[in-house]
Amino acid sequence: MNQVLNVLLYIQIILCFFCLYRIIKGPTIADRMVGIDIFGILVVGICAIIAMITERSFIIDIGIAWIILSFIGTLTLAKYLGGRKLNE
């Protein structure tokens, strides 16, 4: 059981490198931001799998906090990209 979960965890971590490729290579700034947004969601998946392996409940709290932080970060960057003031 644990071996299966470990293999799935490694696959999920390899997926993060796909996003890193897009962040490094991306021709425009918007491509990089898409990469960062998706990276944040993948990290939540990693938190969930680690919570399954270790059976500790505080790791899912880290996941919830990560969702909110990634959301606010993306929203701020998107508003900056759209040329708006941040207090609008």
């Binding site: 425009t28 969601i41 909110i68 990209l81 040329g83």
Partner: peptide, 23 residues
Amino acid sequence: AIIMLFFAATVAAHALVRGAYIF
């Protein structure tokens, strides 16, 4: 977490695509 992720992901996608177009 599922409910939060759902709303966060969709709203972030709207914001990103709009920002990219205006940029």
